[in-house]
Design a protein around this nucleic acid. Sequence first.
DNA 1: TTGTAAGCGTTATCAA
DNA 2: TTGATAACGCTTACAA
Lengths: 325, 325
Amino acid sequence: MTPKLEDVAKRANVSKTTVSRVLNNRGYLSQKTIDKVYAAMKELNYHPNAVARQLYKNQTNLIGILLPTVANPFFGELTDTLERLLYQQGFKVLIGNSMNDPKKETAYLNQLLSKQVDGLIVGTHNQGIKQYDYQDLPVVAIDRIMNEDIPIIASDNYHGGVLATTHLIDRGAEKIIHTNGPLTLETPSQRRRVAYEETMMAHNLTPLTYTVDFNISSEAKKVVFQKLLEEHPDVDGIFAANDTDAALIMQVAAEFGRHIPDDLLLVGYDGTKLIRDLIPSLTTIIQPIEAISTTAINVLKQRLAHEDTEKEYILPVELWPGTTG
Amino acid sequence: MTPKLEDVAKRANVSKTTVSRVLNNRGYLSQKTIDKVYAAMKELNYHPNAVARQLYKNQTNLIGILLPTVANPFFGELTDTLERLLYQQGFKVLIGNSMNDPKKETAYLNQLLSKQVDGLIVGTHNQGIKQYDYQDLPVVAIDRIMNEDIPIIASDNYHGGVLATTHLIDRGAEKIIHTNGPLTLETPSQRRRVAYEETMMAHNLTPLTYTVDFNISSEAKKVVFQKLLEEHPDVDGIFAANDTDAALIMQVAAEFGRHIPDDLLLVGYDGTKLIRDLIPSLTTIIQPIEAISTTAINVLKQRLAHEDTEKEYILPVELWPGTTG
DNA sequence: TTGTAAGCGTTATCAA
DNA sequence: TTGATAACGCTTACAA
């Protein structure tokens, strides 16, 4: 059996209280006692049981992060950043990758509700879980609308949409298509669509948004993009929903003999460090992952402290020029 | 306060034992009692406290995953796969991204030793933590040598090295350079270097391995690759340590007016789904992420059950042809 | 400066 | 079919 506090106490000829005090250096201790206790701990190779502590304190120092998948560059970098910042503040991270499967998401939520985590950061793209009863679990949402009580941290999707669309128009595109997820999803990223459509109309251009399901395979996505190019041979600009989609479009365009940027302009979205390293030529909008993470954690900590928070936090985006758009 | 089992018991006019029985449907219960208890739970919106359970059972159903960073495609997909498989078996995942910082890694290990997790999957690239005393925490290592007691799950790095090198030679390259991490790291991936060097010599070619630190920024890496091309203008084949490095080499080569694959052949390593989607032209060696994950989990479960395991598990790799190598 | 004892919320043994 | 009670390993009043 792993040694417990009581074993250390016996070994050092002191009480459990004293060992606990040494462990948390609280109260008055004589140096002699401290040394004795440390010696006993070392001899037994003692490690305090975190779960017992958690039970007493009613606090786990664990934060749950619920996202579609960490295999996607945006969510990967987001998770990485959140983990790094949370770790600095004494939290560890429990992840749940829902793959946007409502069943898995609900299961995770239910389980995490059981005092497993002190707080929750949610960034999945589901509908219908809005009515969820979060009891007293502090939750913040990243780029997702949950319900009235849950603060949203998002980047400035509207401005991102304006930036991308304006950039394409400035560079001479006129027949511009935007790809985005289904309208039924009430995500803040739908504001990109609105921004795109309003910007187009402000320039007397006709907006056309192509719906591409988030969750289909890249092979299936390529088929959609092939169809897009077939149906709209005159398209001269594409504002893609994200960078990986944009990369697929680059490939499909090449198959169709379209040359980017000469006869087709392309702008992506997200602008992760990884994509900028791998495909620096891709024009894209950079989401402020660091700022999103910092804000999400700050707001969550306010919630943990039962302080009031804003309903929504919008962080600025930035254009990565590249050469495709 | 969140309701506890006792509150439900009072509400339903039964004992705590009975509520617990209903919760875990164990023992004999009358339907009437069951209904009564469920009604009370619903009224109070009761959720059992996971931590109390964990304490009693001395088991958390949490697995720690310690990797450099989830922002890297290989580790991102690995984490994603591990999470998915572990979830199916009733485990949740606690992540630690050490960024190969030995301090952070040690801190994580120490904390996770505290009965926080039932088991640990480690895949960081540090030295010097080998002597670590893991007590009775079941641990498996992915592509990393820890100590004698810890099983290693790795892909067939030697064969991967042979595949890559042979491919380059078959395609006509003679002055082939391999990039890899520092030799001081005793990782199984050093077997790629050995395979490369032996394959080269078997073909009467001179091997040259260029050391590139894993942890430096992509900007710094580019500088290293520039130096490589300057110092070896006659290089006609590069076997890169991984795909993101290969992508950087593609960019640097373009800057140097080198045309891939016409006057420079390039093979990467890892072959994640993401890279194959983003840069399908990149010739690379595919690591079997799914098999690695399945094996790691199976071995870990054997360890959890105190069963004996092999010392090492080697999984087969595969060549992704692409067009760069 | 140190110790005793109660309690965190659950499960399981034993008895009824 | 149900209930009282001890235990899981720790922290903290309160007492000495």
